[in-house]
Design a protein around this nucleic acid. Structure first.
Length: 290
DNA sequence: CCAGTTCTTCCCATTACTTCA
DNA sequence: CCTGAAGTAATGGGAAGAACT
């Protein structure tokens, strides 16, 4: 426990001070200092900032005598009052910060030296470094959190984009499957009536009649309203059935008359892109819904 | 050499106090 | 002047490792 180390710190500093001649009765002041006891002096900058009041230069300062008088008046009171915390002085903190930048761990020798230079107790130096390490760690954690959050946000945006893309791919598969369905139910001898028949027949197949009627517009080119909802369950049935389109009674020649080069344009020429990912539509039908 | 004890330092959670808006 | 929030010095407990017996 650190309570023990406080005693040791005091012991150590006393040992050190015995070996060195420090003016102004610093030994007495230090030996008077007992942990948890009221500090002998209160300074606006520091709770036990002996350096500020006992330094050789300070004794020469005009304020010193006044200060000392006040301190003497308060001394007895202090001995009987609970300890009051004092913030470290600006210069002390600056000095400690510099020292912390060099090395954030504190060897005993360095602790004593800092304590001596700043006129603080070694215990205070140790505590300051401990708290400083804690603050540093908190800052690092905050930075890491911000970084992780930014990373998460990017991933999430990416994920949403992919979801959108996926939805578009589903719609495309829907569209192509429907085209197959249409072909399956087309009468090769009367292509135009067949198309309208197929529209009626498949009214139970998909969800949106308007979308179906739009498969072939006036220009005869297929198009599909991607914004409309689609019945994926029906699509599953459709994709299963769609394989039969190639077993149709219709001859190949008739097919070509109706949908010239349809297979080439619709399947074989599908280039790998963000929507089909390079897979054949047949394959997509199996993996897309898994 | 090993086991037990003591010492020292660290981290962590918390408290106590100061400062400031 | 009072008050709450934020910042920080200080405390206490536990863990780990080194030194000692």
């Amino acid at each position: 426990m650190e309570g023990g180390s406080v005693d040791d710190d005091s012991r150590m500093i006393n040992v050190l001070l015995k070996d060195e001649t420090i003016p102004c009765n610093s030994e007495v002041l230090d030996s008077l200092w007992v942990p948890n006891s009221p500090p002998p002096f209160h300074d606006s900058a520091s709770m036990v900032n002996f350096e500020n009041i006992r330094g050789e230069n300070n004794t020469e300062s005009p304020c010193f005598n006044t200060k000392m008088a006040n301190y003497n008046n308060e001394f007895d009171e202090c001995l009987h009052q609970p300890e009051k915390k004092r913030r470290l002085g600006e210069d002390q903190v600056k000095f400690l910060e510099k020292s912390f930048e060099v090395e954030n761990k504190l060897e005993p020798q360095r602790k004593l030296q800092l304590a001596k230079e700043l006129g603080l107790q070694p215990r205070q130096i140790a505590i300051w470094f401990q708290n400083r390490r804690a603050r540093y760690k908190t800052k690092i954690l905050e930075k890491e959190y911000d970084s992780l959050k930014a990373s998460y946000d990017r991933l999430r945006a990416n994920y949403e984009t992919l979801c959108k893309e996926n939805e578009e791919m589903k719609n495309e598969v829907n569209f192509l499957a429907e085209k197959l369905f249409t072909r399956e139910n087309t009468n090769p001898c009367d292509p135009f009536s067949s198309i309208s028949d197929s529209h009626q027949k498949k009214s139970n197949f998909s969800s949106n009649a308007s979308a179906k009627s739009d498969v072939f517009d006036n220009s005869g080119s297929p198009h599909y309203d991607y914004t409309e909802g689609n019945d994926h369950t029906a699509l599953l049935d459709l994709t299963a059935d769609s394989s039969r389109v190639f077993e149709s009674d219709c001859s190949q020649g008739e097919d070509e008359r109706l949908f010239p080069k349809l297979e080439v344009e619709s399947f074989d020429d599908l280039q790998p892109n963000s929507c089909n990912l390079g897979f054949l539509v047949q394959d997509q039908g199996t993996w897309l819904w898994q």
